[in-house]
Design a binder for these strands. Sequence first.
DNA 1: GTAGGGTTAG
Length: 705
Amino acid sequence: MCRWVLILRWRKCYSTLAITANSKIAEYARLGQIDNARRVFDHIPHKGVVSWNSIIAGYFQNKQPSEAQSLFDQMPDRNLVSWNGLISGYVKNGMVDEARKVFDEMPERNVVSWTAMVRGYVEEGLVSEAEALFWQMPEKNVVSWTVMLGGLIQQGKMEEAQRLYDMMPVKDVVARTSMVGGLCQEGRLGEAREIFDNMPHRNVFSWTSMISGYAQNEKVDLARKLFEVMPEKNEVSWTAMLMGYIQSERIEEALELFDAMPIKSIVACNAMILGLGKNGKVTRARRIFDSMRVKDDAAWNAMIKVYERKGFDLEAFDMFRCMQRQGLRLNFPSLISVLSVCASLASVNHGRQIHAQLLRSKLDDDVYVSSVLITMYVKCGDLIKAKQVFDRFSLKDVVMWNSIITGYAQHGLADETLQAFREMCSLGIAADAVTFVGVLSACSYTGKVKEGKEIFEAMKSKYLVDPGTEHYACMVDLLGRAGHLVEAMDMINKMPVEADAIVWGSFMAACRNHMNLDLAEVAAKQLLQLEPQNAGHYVLLSNIFASKGKWGDVAKLRKHMRLRKVSRSPGCSWIEVDKKVHMFTGGEHMPHPEHPMIVEKLESLAALLREAGYVPDGSFVLHDLDEEEKVRSLGHHSEKLAIAYGLLKLPGGMPIRVMKNLRVCGDCHVAIKLISKVTGRLIILRDANRFHHFEDGVCSCNDYW
DNA sequence: GTAGGGTTAG
């Protein structure tokens, strides 16, 4: 008697233990600690079928389908749950074919098996396969119907979805919620609301679905009304509401809601960071980022993207490095952002490093990534490497062709640009608007007026691409540079759309280069109207007035500038030395630590230049200084500082690559040509528009920029 | 304790 009790007690205890072990397996698997789950599994003395099922599901959950399959093969006995688990495991790993094989081979099937398989097809977007299977099902229940419904909705087949929904014998909360979501996606808010209102039961999901529907369709206030009355909210509901404000750019209200959120989900934080970034509130975005206890890939990407978009390249890069130091894996969006950062910083070394990582993680055989890579190398001035990446890729799309075409154009290689353009056309790839910007600007940079005009005409008639403002800007630039100012003006007047600042800016520069002060004045006034905050326009107009001796107008303009609180966007140049980017600003507010040495170098250079016959040209300076002061101010233009630093730090024979955020000024251009001559160094300068290769006193732009 | 459905982002 006593013995039996003991045995029974022992058995009871044993089964409790097994259950605990099985839940431990599931728990570890959920946390991504599959090895711990396995350890628990291995220590169970007499493993039941549930333990096996649990560990197999765990491996599927942790993206190790082959290990799961191998365990399945070793199982002493399997039940229907094991088979169904295998199907759903493959489905979750996007392996429909494997799932189907299991489905065909299994000894018996129930509704769950069928539903899982239908779901598998739906996940892959194979709706017709899903439908075929669905109608073959020996029995269906609400879940199977809902899976099929979800598939149709996901594919945007709303009429079919509607029909299926009407046919459903039983509609529960889930099915109704699905339908609400589908209708909202189509903007059919009224119908969605009707289903919502007529639901016998509503839960958080249904409420959130309706709220999100309003929020996504620019009905934020309606969303808010519902949000206020919903009985219980979870973090997803809060986030859905938040997204509404962010998407309608109502950033203050978004912030208010965000601060009120009881639980700030990662999704909410990430969305808030991006939203703030879009609205220029970078510091606030950073504060939220720092406050996040757990940061996922998306959080890092969001922060990197915010910095990248704002042009805070160094910060973006630091962030990326920080992310890697935390041991986070490279992922697609952050790679794209950071490659753009490398491109904009023209940091070849960093770019190459990332390229290497790309190769290792096998992310490089993607059109998108390759195009960004090409652009990166182009902007870093390494056309050879850009071409290598380009050639390596077999299935090139327009974007990739555009990358290399624009690259050649920016380096002033018109023949290569045109050749690539022809090659692309002969391969039957349709040129788009971006292609023509590249081709036309190449013609413009190199004075190919005839070719440019022909291409511009062909663009409309032969390639059927409507010219946009950017193409007119190219044409105005092309004509203007070549001195056909009247024709350029004519082009502006004939434009179907209003000329923007870029068009007028090109025209302006042309007038200045060809010393047509009257037309320049017209252009400058237009520019001031279009961009009253851009200090560059004041500088230009002021220079024109000064050249004409209209000192009264100069004074008036300055006063105007002060009144409107316009400040010059600071010129800034940078150079990469020892894998570090060194920034230089024109003034002496934030001097480089090695400033004295650089100034010394500049002075010795100045002496050499004077010997070579260089006379500083003060007309490029805005400030009303006396001659000597002007020379000093010119001497400290940021590009010269950066070049001097490069001369000091980079071994002889190595090209000096300098980047500048504005267009290089005329005086610097003359001076740098001479510097390349007296020092015998190749100097590559990337300014806001294009590349200048200075060698032995000559620039690749032929003084035409 | 193990198998099938609905809500937030990029």
